[in-house]
Amino acid sequence: MVLRTALAILAKDLRIEARTREGLASALVLGVLLVLVFSVAHDAPADRAPSLAPAVLWVTFVFTGLLGVQRSFVLEREHDALAGLLVAPVDAAALFFGKLAGNMLLLGVMQAIVLPLVAVLLHVELWAALPALLVVLLLGNLGFAALATLFAAITVRARAREVMLPVLLLPLLVPVLIGGVKATQAILVAGLAAAREPLGVIAAFDVIVTVAGVLLFEQVVRE
């Protein structure tokens, strides 16, 4: 039941996205621009460029993700769509999982564009490392999307909402940021086995924030 409702919410968000293309378009443009800005600002010589890639990737993911997740809740706030969903009635956990899945998809599509771009611009050998990097990205996306979904539901209804989401989210996201950067570094240098420790950190983070998100989401969306 929860799963079916969650899928219905995901389908609704995907349909909106397919018709407007706003979320993906703005996330993609912002992502590409951030990569360009970081690369230009660092101005690294060709031999040192690959070592910048992990940090550039993850900072880009975090800031683009913030924008995307924020947007998915701005839609719900307009015309009190969220209140409508809740009286439908939609279970808070189903709403959380539906939104979480939508946000993970958005992040994934954005990364599918940004990752090759970073590989080209910063001279990273992508193909060999790609399967291992997918593991890191998937784990990172889950943790990021779970925490961001929980907090975006809060900040979208707060008064200073544009600033509030990054202010609340960035310090709590540190494990994903550090874990993601360290795991990506390790994979690019030595392969998946070397990234076990940072991957463990991200996985622990995923479990904690997903469980906390499911349990606390009702408190957040309740009118």
Partner: peptide, 26 residues
């Protein structure tokens, strides 16, 4: 209510942050 959610999530995430910052100077 929102602040209470943040207060709880904060304390749950802190142990993971503690472990993750150790990766910085691995």
């Amino acid at each position: 209510r929102w602040a209470a959610v943040l207060g709880i999530v904060g304390v749950l995430v802190i142990p993971v942050i503690r472990v993750s910052v150790r990766l910085l100077h691995g």
